[in-house]
């Protein structure tokens, strides 16, 4: 008697991986989902901390997709392991700091480890030839399969008919004829397929699923590495790059200025790790200082902070500075004048 075959599907939360999993489920294969959290995933709720984004749905799309499909989802923390992918990508970066090809190889490799440990048979991804300029090209497909170690246990149901038959197809675990031959950047075939499956609601992230594809985020990451003269980072660093206004008046320190109350509340969680300041004579933003500012630098930082508060036109404001050990002191500063900050300070 044939035992039911089992597959793990990489679920990003977008439409393609949802359709890929659904296509295989329709053939009677037991499918579960896996989602990797690198620290750079847009799927995180960073936007939820901003007041202006409160109206946006806060759902995690990977979880939501799993629930729509009726499958389990395993969310795996790969923050530490992902560092080597980002810091030194063998295949280089894309338009920004996105190491898409190395990232895909890494994730498929992690999925391959997972199926070995959990007695599953093969891996499903939602890749489509020609969909993405770096990682989803005809020539990258065999590289991902080979360098991840998944080899022919990697099935791409949406474009399988354009590729050589994989083990699940050759062994008859899935019927190749019921797989697809989608190519290119058009979303029409996927939308038609979604309609056919009765899937009316699905995420369509305009900027992809990773902050590293964002040029503004990438600029802040590069600035961080340059300032520290090292490409290493911690999760707190990459989380803080997602919030606030970042201003670096000198190479050895920068200000992270909350743009609104929600961000300020989130940033207060880092009070013990960073020197911070807030205006006490007028309403103003909460600010973290990253780096090693001198006593003189603190005056400069305070005057910059003051220009973002209600006291920006005052002759002088009171600024409370809190050190990492919790000690507090208040200094008086004149808000930094001028129409604009020097452009090179703004990251």
């Amino acid at each position: 008697m044939n035992h039911p075959r089992k597959a793990i599907a990489l679920i990003s939360g977008g439409l393609d991986s949802m359709l890929a999993a659904k296509t295989v489920m329709e053939q009677g294969v037991h499918v579960e989902g896996i989602n990797f959290f690198t620290g750079f995933c847009v799927e995180g709720h960073t936007h939820a901390i901003r007041e202006k984004d409160k109206s946006k749905a806060k759902r995690n799309n990977a979880l939501w997709v799993a629930e729509q499909l009726g499958i389990k989802l395993h969310i795996v923390d790969v923050i530490e392991e992902y560092k080597k992918v980002l810091i030194n990508p063998k295949h280089g970066y894309g338009a920004n700091m996105n190491p898409c090809l190395d990232c895909k190889i890494f994730m498929v490799n992690k999925a391959k480890q997972w199926i070995s440990e959990n007695d599953f048979d093969f891996i499903i991804t939602g890749e489509v030839i020609g969909q993405r300029p770096m990682s989803q090209r005809k020539w990258t497909m065999p590289i991902i399969a080979e360098q991840s170690g998944a080899d022919d246990r990697l099935l791409r149901p949406l474009c399988a008919k354009n590729l050589a038959p994989t083990l699940p197809e050759r062994e008859g675990w899935v019927d190749r004829e019921k797989l697809h031959s989608i190519t290119g950047r058009s979303r029409k075939p996927q939308m038609a397929m979604a309609k056919q499956f009765g899937l009316n609601d699905y995420a369509q992230p305009a900027g992809g699923c990773c902050f590293l594809t964002d040029k503004f985020y990438s600029a802040k990451l590069v600035d961080l590495w340059k300032a520290r003269q090292s490409k290493d980072y911690e999760l707190d660093d990459v989380m803080l790059l997602k919030v606030g206004r970042h201003i670096r008046p000198k190479p050895h320190f920068k200000l992270i200025i909350a743009r609104e109350e929600g961000e300020g509340r989130f940033m207060q969680g880092y009070k013990r790790d960073y020197i911070n300041m807030v205006c006490t004579s007028h309403t103003g933003p909460f600010v973290l200082l990253d780096g090693t500012p001198s006593a003189e630098d603190l005056y400069l930082a305070a005057s910059i902070t003051a220009r973002y508060g209600q006291g920006r036109h005052a002759e002088q404001v009171d600024m409370m500075i809190t050190e990492k050990d919790g000690s507090e002191r208040t200094i008086q500063v004149k808000p930094l004048a001028g129409e604009k900050l020097p452009e090179e300070w703004v990251i």
Partner: peptide
């Protein structure tokens, strides 16, 4: 402290067979 958990943890519970007994929020 992330309000998103009010949606995500119940969703995770539903797909993994756990039961949410209570949710509440106060003071962020």
């Amino acid at each position: 402290t992330d309000p998103g958990v009010m949606q995500d943890i119940p969703a995770w519970c539903r797909i993994n067979g756990h039961k949410v007994l209570e949710t509440n929020s106060a003071d962020h």
